[in-house]
Write a protein that binds this DNA or RNA. Structure first.
Lengths: 217, 217
DNA sequence: AAACTGCCAACTGTCGACAGTTGACAACTC
DNA sequence: GAGTTGTCAACTGTCGACAGTTGGCAGTTT
C-alpha cells in the first residue's frame, strides 16, 4: 500500500503534487509558513523528501524560502501582479504569433471546441469559470509547438492561479474574455501572427487590470 | 575556516555556486553523470545539501534528472537550441520594448559604455569575447525594469552559455553583433519600442543561426 | 557464437538524530 | 514604564546509515 511505494513516483514527487494542490487551492493560505516536521508527519514521510518537494515548489514560485525561517506561501502584491503579467504577456504573445504560423487543423478544432464549451458552461453557470480559460491558453501554447515557451507559460499561469486564490475574486468579465478568445482563434486560423499578438496583449492587459482592481478592493 | 561555516551561505548554496561554475566552464563535460557521493566528498559536504544543490541546478536547466540514475549535464541538440532561442527571443524582444519606454539616461550611459568596451576589447583581441556580450544583454534587461522577465532572461542566457561551452565554437560574427547592439541602443534611446523589438529579433536569429552552424560542423 | 538468466556492485531514495540559528518571552536596568 | 539583555524552545541545516533499484557482467544454454 503506502509504506514502500517508490514504484511509480518518488515520495518527493508525490509530496510535490500534494503540496502544490494544497497551495493552489488555498488550503495552505498565502502568508502562512510551511513547517517541515509537521507537514512531513502529516504526509507520513521523512523531512528529506519533503525538503526536496518544498525547494521544487519554491523554484516554481509557489513558495518563498527564507534562510533559517522556512518556506512561506507568497502574498499577493500589486507590483508582483504587474511584473508577472509583463512576463506572461511576453510569453503568450510570442506563443500566439507562433501558433498563427504553425497551427494544424486539429489545433483549430480543439480551440473552437474549448471556446464553445466556455459559452456552454457560462450559460449554465458552472462552478469553475476559470477551468476552461486555462484550457484555452493551454491549447493555444500547444499549437505554438515551442516546448520551452510552453514550459514557462505553464509556470506563470500556475502563479496566476495562486494569486487568484489569494484574491478570491468574483466572476470576472468572462464575456469580454470569451470574445477575446474567439477573436484570437480567428487571427490564428487566418495565420495572422501580428493580429494574434495584438489581441493577446489586449486580452492579458484587460485580465491584469481586473486583477489589480479586485486587489485594491 | 571551512568545516562549520553556515555564517553567510548554506552549504547547499555554496555547492550550487561551485557546481554551476564547473558545469558552465565545461569542467564537468556535457553528457557526463554527477555522482552524489563522489562530488559530496570532493566538496567536503554531506549528500543532503549536495542533493539540494543538484535539484536547484536541475530547475535552472543546467542538469537533467533521471530517476534512480542520477543527474546528467544536458547535451547540445539542434531542436533544443531552436526551442531555447524561441524562448529567448520572446523574452528579450519584450525586454527591448520595455527598455525603450522605461530607460533612464543612466541606462543609456551604461549601454553606450558596454558597446564602447566591446569595440575596445575586439581591437585588442581580448580572451573572452562573450563577456561583454553578456554584459550588454544584462544591462538591457535592467533598463527594462521588469524583474520577472529579467529573472527568466538570466536563466535562458545561462543555458545558452552551457550550450556554447559544449560547442567550443570559434570567435563569432562579433562585428555583426556589435553593429546590432549599436542599432539596438539607438532605438532604445529614441524610445522606439517597435524598432527595438525588430532589431533584437534579427540579432538573436543571427546568433541562433550561427550556433546551429557550428553544431552541424 | 549468440542469446538468455541470474547475480552483484554501485548508486539513488529515504530515514532518524544531532548541531546551529532564529525569534520571542521574561527578567532586569534605568 | 520603556528599553535592554539573557534565556529558551522551536525549527532549519546537516550528517551518517540503511533499504530499494538499476545496469552490467559472468555463467549457462541452445
Amino acid at each position: 500500500m503506502t509504506p514502500p511505494t517508490p514504484l511509480h513516483l518518488s515520495l518527493a514527487g508525490q509530496a510535490v503534487d500534494v503540496l502544490r494542490e494544497q497551495v493552489l487551492t488555498g488550503e495552505i493560505p498565502p502568508g502562512s509558513r510551511v513547517n517541515e516536521v509537521e507537514v512531513a508527519q502529516k504526509l507520513g514521510i521523512s523531512r528529506g523528501p519533503l525538503r526536496e518537494a518544498i525547494r521544487h515548489l519554491a523554484s516554481e514560485g509557489l513558495l518563498t524560502l527564507v534562510p533559517h525561517r522556512g518556506a512561506f506561501v507568497p502574498d499577493a502584491d500589486a507590483d508582483e501582479v504587474k511584473a508577472l503579467f509583463e512576463l506572461r504577456t511576453a510569453l503568450e504573445c510570442a506563443a500566439a504569433e507562433l501558433a498563427a504560423s504553425r497551427r494544424t487543423d486539429m489545433d483549430l478544432v480543439r480551440l473552437h471546441e474549448v471556446c464553445a464549451a466556455s459559452r456552454r458552461d457560462y450559460k449554465t453557470g458552472q462552478p469553475f469559470p476559470y477551468r476552461l480559460d486555462l484550457a484555452f491558453h493551454q491549447t493555444l501554447i500547444e499549437a505554438a509547438r515551442s516546448p520551452r515557451i510552453a514550459e514557462q507559460v505553464r509556470l506563470v499561469q500556475q502563479r496566476v492561479v495562486l494569486l487568484r486564490s489569494a484574491l478570491a475574486d468574483d466572476p470576472p468579465h468572462q464575456h469580454a474574455s470569451m470574445d477575446d478568445h474567439d477573436e484570437l482563434v480567428k487571427a490564428i486560423a487566418d495565420g495572422d501572427a501580428a493580429k494574434a499578438s495584438i489581441v493577446m496583449r489586449r486580452h492579458l492587459s484587460r485580465v491584469c487590470a481586473q486583477m489589480m482592481m479586485s486587489m485594491s478592493h
